[in-house]
Simulated scan of single mutants.
Amino acid sequence: MTAIRRTSLADQAAELLLARIQSGEWPIGTKLPGETTLAPMFDVGRSTMREAIRQLVGRGILVTRQGSGVFVESIDEARTDWDKVLQRAHITAVLEARLAIEGEAAGLAAARRTPTDLDAIRGSLEVRNTARPDAVDLVEADMAFHRSIVVASHNDILLELFDSMAPRLRDAMIDMLKIKGTFGEDADHDAHTDVVESIAAREPERAHNLTRAHLLELSKSMAPST
């Protein structure tokens, strides 16, 4: 078992997983073991392992295939033009991109979600609720919650776009919450609950509008002072 030092567990897990991929343990095209298998191998929890995988998806090392799992796409971290755009972009620009991606995904999820999708969304909402006291836990749970909705849209392109932005967004959100000092308010949780209920009720327009309204508020709160 490989022990992980303190600081960012997800970042360290991602680097250790990348090192093992580059060593040939999982060649290109290989399907990775599931999170429940990988997490103990790196001495981290499932949510941390999930975030590490998400980071490597965003970096082009791994690829998620709907209904099949996570596969090794490359052993080299080639920095693409898209990666460079995300690195340069102010977080408000990334949030504006989320408006397009997640607003559409929420509407599609309301129309296309399966009972299994809805169970996953409700489960991730509950995890998010319990994570509210801690900034890092809340951000990781929040990203997992929003990703579960994108998954329920059954649109692979929207999912790839979300995954590519996730590492950039995660770090900025954690920094913002730590600076803000207060987070996880009941009103914020209620806004997320309303989105879930609109998806459960199969109300695409309401799900779309509620998601956009939430992200617009978030974007305003993170806008630079003038």
Rank of each mutant, 00 (worst) to 15 (best):
Arg50Ala: 13
Leu16Asn: 10
Gly45Ala: 08
Ile28His: 01
Arg20Leu: 11
Met49Glu: 05
Gln55Ile: 11
Ser23Gly: 04
Pro40Glu: 12
Ala19Pro: 00
Lys31Thr: 06
Ile53Glu: 09
Arg46Tyr: 02
Met41Gly: 03
Leu16Arg: 12
Leu38Lys: 10
Thr37Pro: 02
Phe42Trp: 08
Gly45Ile: 01
Ile21Glu: 00
Trp26Met: 08
Ala19Tyr: 02
Leu32Ile: 03
Ser23Asp: 03
Glu51Tyr: 05
Gln55Ala: 13
Gly45Phe: 05
Glu35Asp: 13
Leu38Thr: 09
Arg50Ile: 01
Gly24Thr: 02
Glu35Ala: 14
Thr36Cys: 08
Ile28Gln: 03
Thr36Gly: 10
Glu35Gly: 08
Gln22Leu: 06
Ser23Asn: 04
Pro33Val: 08
Gly45Val: 05
Ile21Pro: 04
Thr30Ser: 15
Ile21His: 02
Gln22Lys: 10
Ser23Glu: 02
Val44Gln: 10
Thr37Cys: 09
Glu35Phe: 12
Leu38Tyr: 09
Pro33Tyr: 02
Lys31Val: 07
Gly24Lys: 02
Glu25Leu: 12
Leu18His: 05
Leu32Asn: 06
Pro40His: 10
Ala19Glu: 14
Ile21Cys: 03
Leu16Val: 06
Leu18Gln: 04
Val44Lys: 08
Lys31Ser: 09
Ala52Ile: 03
Thr48Cys: 11
Ile53Val: 14
Phe42Thr: 05
Ile28Phe: 01
Arg46Ala: 11
Leu16Gly: 10
